[in-house]
Design a protein around this nucleic acid. Sequence first.
DNA 1: CGGTGTGAAAGTTTTCACAGCG
DNA 2: CGCTGTGAAAACTTTCACACCG
Lengths: 233, 233
Amino acid sequence: MTESRPQPSPQAEPPSDGGVPKVVVSRISLYLRELQRLVAAGQQTISSGQLGTLLGFSDAQVRKDLGFFGQFGYPGVGYRCDELIRAMRDILGTNHSWNVAMVGVGNLGQALLGYRGFGRQNFSIAAAFDADSAKVGQVVQGLTIQHVDDLAATVKAKDIRLGMIVVPAARAQEAADRLVAAGIEGIVNFAPVTLVLPPHVQNIGVDLAIELEQLSFAVTNKLLKPPAVPPPG
Amino acid sequence: MTESRPQPSPQAEPPSDGGVPKVVVSRISLYLRELQRLVAAGQQTISSGQLGTLLGFSDAQVRKDLGFFGQFGYPGVGYRCDELIRAMRDILGTNHSWNVAMVGVGNLGQALLGYRGFGRQNFSIAAAFDADSAKVGQVVQGLTIQHVDDLAATVKAKDIRLGMIVVPAARAQEAADRLVAAGIEGIVNFAPVTLVLPPHVQNIGVDLAIELEQLSFAVTNKLLKPPAVPPPG
DNA sequence: CGGTGTGAAAGTTTTCACAGCG
DNA sequence: CGCTGTGAAAACTTTCACACCG
């Protein structure tokens, strides 16, 4: 051990508690994204103030957020970027890779199949399904589209734990039911409907029109933005 | 007037205040989405309890959220769906239509151009730009891709107020700068970077990998979901 | 010094509970 | 009655401010 660590144990004590506010977890993702960019640019350490400034948050908020999960910093120095990245991936569960099943391979689904950003964060779309037999068998982004009837078998065979719903609104609940029946643990839903799911299945909705609505509200009401931040050098 | 209204004025008094919590506005969008579905299914009125139950919120929360914007209900009855939809669109600013400029017409951009959900909420992608001259002139979803150099002129000519960034991360800030220079008022950013923008420009980031990360966290920590809700009959 | 970690204070959002209305 | 609208209480989140560390 040539490097000394913060106070307690090497990777600090992660309470692994479910009592962490959701908004804190979403900021952890933002911190991680920013850190990855900084490391790629060669930066070794960062203070809570710098990281906060880059994202429009206060230094105290950055420290409090991290404090939910352990102690990662070095007083007088800040945080070592590589260590903090690893810690955040441990928090988020992305130090190991996740296989994802996509249901619905229309325009949006095909675009998502080609999106490189997933792989970069350790997500791999391991199978894609559609109910349209004209699509089944087609190869998109190196993946052969399967019929949804194969869903359960493939989910088991490939150890898939997450699902992505990219079907039209009217078919989304049905897709969700199939994913749940296959034993999936979490779903990202791109269809503009609220899914009914058993409580043990996690779910995140991404509604593109709602994002625009929120922007419409902000523009209409000329909301003043928080601090905002010019970048460093 | 055959129909009497709640206490004060017809469309109630909208404080139009910027002091409304962001999370309230995001729920308004969810209420609106659900109401549109209910109306399509023929429902005329709804109570705060029913609406909340469908989305996993409490009745009190629905009423408090609406209370930020005025009085829309009828004691003993609930809300009239059509009136509430109109009121929510007034709140969100989507009773009039918005022209949107898309920058970056790759896989994801093309998929978004074909997405019907935007039009349904009164957003129209009125122009699409790319820096790749091989793409310029191509017609996608009935829209001719223009060179980004035309951005400012087209934004003015078509009265475009919102922008959508669908370029790779490394090009996103540049795209944002062009949109800002063209006088855009708000941006939805699909690139996984934090944009630096003047405070008068609104911005919403949609990072698809972050959505999966949040799901990863939730699944890893087996978060118990709130009430959850079986649908009506 | 410069910077973390953290109790305590301040501020914000949610829940409660009930008066009042049709 | 059934349900809204809304003060007041409770719960939660952010900010402050400072002891402590290298």
